[in-house]
């Protein structure tokens, strides 16, 4: 029924700031950028999983997190914080499942790191 691939779309205030964040801070590759229409997309490190952005006059930060899997949440969080990424709260643990750390992009959209627990 579905073909492989997932795209998450966000409304953003400034495409330049957004691209800077997702490219320079998170390390994703920009695969589309059209300043005329105010739209861009980045490839995540997962094949066919893309994040799209569209500039909008009014943006409501999304509290529904896009979650990125990591091998070492402590190390990744430190690295991103050194790059100026803002995290919200402490790293939390869902017993038997994962460690989670929430951070935000320039528009306040919630993003999350997740490290699967070994016992999960």
């Amino acid at each position: 029924m579905f073909k492989p691939g997932v795209t998450v779309w966000y409304s953003v205030k400034s495409l330049d700031q957004t691209i800077d964040f997702y490219k320079e801070k998170l390390g994703f590759e920009v695969n589309f950028h059209d300043p005329d229409t105010g739209m861009a997309m980045v490839n995540t490190n997962t094949k066919d999983c893309i994040i799209g952005f569209s500039e909008a006059e009014e943006v409501v930060p999304s509290t529904s997190s896009t979650v990125f899997e990591v091998y070492d949440i402590v190390h990744t969080r430190e690295l991103l914080e050194q790059r100026g990424v803002r995290f919200i709260g402490d790293t939390e643990t869902v017993p038997g499942m994962a460690k989670l750390a929430t951070f935000v992009d320039p528009d306040g959209h919630n993003l999350m790191l997740s490290e699967e627990l070994e016992s999960a």
Partner: peptide, 13 residues
């Protein structure tokens, strides 16, 4: 259209 009325960020504002 408010952000909550728009079904996709690429749709009209």
């Amino acid at each position: 259209l408010s952000p909550l009325e728009r079904r996709h960020p690429a749709l009209p504002e």
